[in-house]
């Protein structure tokens, strides 16, 4: 892992009306690492993700991706930086009127000038990469199970081979075995494609299985960031509860 910074968030403040979600938040994501973002419900994990990718314009502060300021971009500049990342939303957010393969082809159509047959083959390739077989391509998202939908969403996020991958609760609502399979998949793809992964999760098992580093959100800031071992030594009561409570210990035991 190099020490180059992929995403650099400085002094980020976001608010919905009078309710501030983040205040002066700083966060670094190193190139090639998997960063897990955790925190109690309502601390704005997903809002942070939305702020970084430009879905929620921040009140103040800057977000830099590979040393390029991406806050307040529009038009062609925005399209340009959107090539840098792929996002997998919580329930997949696959377009329901398109087949799974067409879903993966959407970003290719929009951002590249590949010939149609190649685009189809590439889409199938991405689906296979995400662990789906060829029969899933012509199906509609509603015909897939939850786990398969997430894999298809991952394939769409990876369609343009972006260097950065955002995952919003990738294992929420999956059974433990499917979830573990998904964790392994993320880890494998991350090392094969040397991705930088920004992962929002609630799942301790996912954290233990996939993350290099973890950032804990709370009190409108990042209250701690580091490896699991480092966080385990942190005094914050919520972090103590999280990692040293029964579920945290179980996940740790499962790892060793």
């Amino acid at each position: 892992m190099s020490e180059e910074i992929a995403i650099k968030v400085r002094g980020l403040t976001t608010a919905y009306g009078t309710h501030t979600v983040h205040e002066g938040l700083d966060l670094d994501v190193m190139k090639g690492e998997v960063l897990g973002v955790i925190g109690p419900s309502g601390t704005g994990k997903s809002v942070l993700l939305r702020a970084i990718v430009g879905l929620k314009p921040p009140e103040t502060g800057t977000v830099e991706v590979f040393d390029q300021n991406v806050t307040d971009l529009s038009g062609d500049d925005l399209r340009e930086v959107q090539n840098l990342w792929g996002i997998m939303f919580q329930d997949g957010a696959l377009f329901s009127n398109l087949t799974v393969r067409e879903n993966v082809m959407v970003p290719m159509r929009e951002h590249t000038d590949l010939p149609e047959p190649l685009m189809k083959q590439l889409a199938d390739q991405k689906l296979r990469m995400s662990g789906l077989d060829d029969s899933a391509g012509p199906k509609f998202p509603s015909d897939l199970s939850g786990g398969m939908r997430k894999r298809a969403a991952l394939a769409r996020a990876l369609a343009l081979d972006p260097p950065i991958l955002f995952l919003d609760e990738p294992t929420a609502g999956l059974d433990p075995i499917t979830a573990a399979g998904f964790d392994t998949l993320v880890r494998e793809l991350q090392s094969a494609l040397s991705l930088t992964v920004f992962l929002v999760t609630h799942d301790v098992d996912t954290l233990v299985a996939t993350c290099d580093r973890i950032a804990v959100l709370g009190r409108k800031k990042v209250i701690a960031a580091g490896t699991i071992e480092e966080l385990r030594r942190n005094d914050d009561p919520w972090i103590q509860d999280y990692f040293c409570g029964p579920r945290g210990r179980a996940a740790q035991a499962g790892e060793s």
Binding site: N83, H111, T112, P115, L118, D161
Partner: peptide
């Protein structure tokens, strides 16, 4: 050889 460049050469 990336997704943005291989369009022409692939054929």
């Amino acid at each position: 050889w990336t997704i943005h460049t291989v369009g022409k050469i692939s054929d």
